[in-house]
Design a protein around this nucleic acid. Structure first.
Lengths: 147, 147
DNA sequence: TTGCGAACCAACAATCGTTGCGAATACGGT
DNA sequence: ACCGTATTCGCAACGATTGTTGGTTCGCAA
């Protein structure tokens, strides 16, 4: 996702207005690597701007997604997560606490895929599921530090 | 997923009962590669056994998932899809019609992953998104047959 | 500076997918 | 055949998200 300033310009360029609410959301999302849900963003925004409505948060998130500035993730049942990282990356999901982290994968082009059968692939998403270090040690993992 | 007969035995073995409703679901799911939603399964089951409740369908699907006989997929926002294919495979999702297909990927072990940082990976899901042959030709794709 | 129209909020209703609850029913070990 | 208990079903409730409406504010281009 671009900087709040650049987003403001981009919004105006397509006829959308730059409101204080949107500016708050821009800055909350900028370089945010927590993969927050809409609810979490609304909570954080409410701390800065009490009274901001959840409806407005959804609206702006949707705008950003359709502009390609934000990626919407559906990695688990339940609420969607939003990712301002628009570089070519993939995700790690902790089955224990639900934490999501970015990872970078190289060599994907070399894998063999069988069964494409005329299907045209536009994007490839890789999701690694497992346990984050915290959850690994909490469940008595023998290979974890100070188990 | 195992055969309906094997599932019946497995259900009894863990204290679950084999009801006519469940038998219908077993046979509908056996070797089903359509990745149906709960709703779709309920619809198909209703054709065979009118009056079967959606509640029962969900319950049995959840049982099968926790037994590891069925995989629950959350590839798109909206309803979950169920996959009785328990072999090591991955998925193709058509952005146009929502169709899901199985694909087999080899060479995944050779990719380089950067950013794991102590995370323990238990499973890797690869999702290829794009257009199925039907949707490709429908959208006027130059490389598709008889555009 | 002014004016148009977009965006805001509030309050609600509605949708969709899924699960909780409770009374009636039926599986299946003995 | 009996009985305990899992299962069934219908309905209500839930969480996430979106639609609506109406009144007010306010960004921003001219």
């Amino acid at each position: 996702m671009r900087t709040p300033q650049e987003l403001s310009t981009a919004f105006r360029a397509i006829g959308l207005k730059v409101t204080p609410q949107r500016q708050v959301l821009f800055s909350l999302l900028h370089q945010n690597d927590a993969h927050p849900s809409a609810e979490a963003i609304h909570l954080a925004a409410s701390a800065v701007m009490p009274g901001i409505s959840l409806r407005t948060v959804y609206q702006t998130l949707n705008d950003l997604v359709s502009m390609g500035e934000l990626q919407q993730l559906q990695l688990t049942p339940g609420s969607a997560r939003f990712d301002p990282n628009t570089t070519d990356h993939h995700h790690l999901v902790c089955d224990g606490c639900g934490e999501i982290r970015d990872v970078y994968v190289s060599g994907l082009a070399d894998v063999d895929v069988c069964g494409l059968d005329g299907f045209r692939v536009a994007a490839t998403d890789v999701v690694f599921r497992g346990s984050c270090p915290t959850c690994s040690s909490a469940t008595g993992d023998p290979s974890a530090p100070h188990a």
